[in-house]
Write a protein that binds this DNA or RNA. Sequence first.
RNA 1: GGUUCCGUGGCCGAGCGGCUAGGCAGUGGUCUGCAAAACCAUCUACAGCGGUUCGAAUCCGCUCGGAACCUCCA
Length: 488
Amino acid sequence: MKAEAAQLSIYNSLTGTKETFIPLNEGFVGFYVCGPTVYSNVHLGNCRTFISFDLVYRYLNHLGYKVRYVRNITDVGHLVDDADQGEDKIAKKARLEQLEPMEIVQQYTIDFHDVMNQFNAIAPDIEPTATGHIIEQIELIKAILDNGFAYESNGSIYFDVEKYNESHPYGELSGRKIEDLLTNTRELDGQNEKRAPLDFALWKNASDEHLMKWPSPWGIGFPGWHLECSAMSTKYLGKQFDIHGGGMDLKFPHHECEIAQGTAGCGIAPVRHWMHTNMLTLNGKKMSKSTGNSLLPAELFSGENDLLEKAYDPMVVRFFMMQAHYRSTLDFTSEALNASEKGYAKLIEAMDSLMSLTSSDSSSADVEGLVAKFYEAMNDDFNAPILVSHLFDAVKFINSTKDGKATISAADLSLLQTEMKVFVRDILGLAKSSESGESRLDPVMDLILDLRQEARANKDWSTSDKIRDGLAGAGIVVKDSKEGTSWN
RNA sequence: GGUUCCGUGGCCGAGCGGCUAGGCAGUGGUCUGCAAAACCAUCUACAGCGGUUCGAAUCCGCUCGGAACCUCCA
């Protein structure tokens, strides 16, 4: 474990305060994140949440924790319509496209993984699916029934919220009171199976034409949406675990229901630290597939969309997200993205410069102090934007040293090289995505730049500029400096 | 309607009572054959109105504007 691990504080949505992070079992962290429902392509807003938690995972790992990271794939149980009404999202898509539900699941799971790879997000240690844990879900329902917090109705099982509320506060995570919820709940049709409008389904009775269904002690049916996370987190992380993450839009009712299910079924509150990421907005509004206010990663990477004029590198987008705190909304505009693109290029170039910097007898800046600030920023509830600002302080120092206007000692150089790599590559996850297989291009460029250098030596500016402009047209930027000419 | 949150300079975003983050853009320099980059300097802020305080972007109240959740959504 790193000494800095003792200083980590995390904002807990449950208490509304930053708390020093002390894991349940020393040295180990149980970490659960609500994953996507795979009935369509993930959009950029979804990605932001997963990238935010990727940062959390990476930092916990860096601190030396042995993290078990579980992120589910929801492949059944999500209903299209009002609460516990309507059709399963995946089944609907399957019906529309005349495919097996599992074909839909497979297609969009692959897409999800592909996108997360492009964003350089580390895969979770376990990625369980709801359909793979039907038995565990049934067992959990039995426990909740045995403890008297659920009832059967027409082959469906509902969670008895009012009963639960008698002994445990329902709504503590989202700051709701059950009386307010009752007054503000709309009257919905077809809720006659439920005793009370706040009750939610643990198991739903399935009709004959239903595509996805399983046998249970209560007949043929399928699990309710909220249940899978409870069943799977309990199975892989235990009745109580350290961190549960998800988007803010899942706070109510999903996470509230998880708390109730876990407490009712296992007798203990399931989660110690709740973390919620804020929304990525577009035109000032939350990105959302249902309203069409969204952007797909593929559209962004290819530039084929109506919002932006050009394509963007996944790493630029990731960097853009790292410049905002995960608990703040982040507005997505082409202007903001362009700014990030330039800033990112500056950072990466400085990283390259750092690796070939020469040291002096002493440092003209407090490198150790700067590195300490990197940790301070991350320890303060994963404050990536503050970290980035300190990284740019380092960038300025690196460039000044390169220009001969500042100095760095050998020890400090080694420290800065190590820590910059750690924070930029390992923690922020900003891999150099352009280091693709351009090995065949290298000798060609060497030759071209050689010819250009000859022209420059002869003061044949028209030839040298012709080469530079021509390469620029091909997307290759040539830069002359004292050390020679570079390109990218 | 209920609950919660937000409103920072041209743009994006930090900030959690005093020490005026950072990136991008702008302006003026240095450097350079030119360009780019880099470096130095510099200009635009805390929605409005009150209050608390020696001191407020930061705390309190009101007004205006926006968002999220209350129904599927990361």
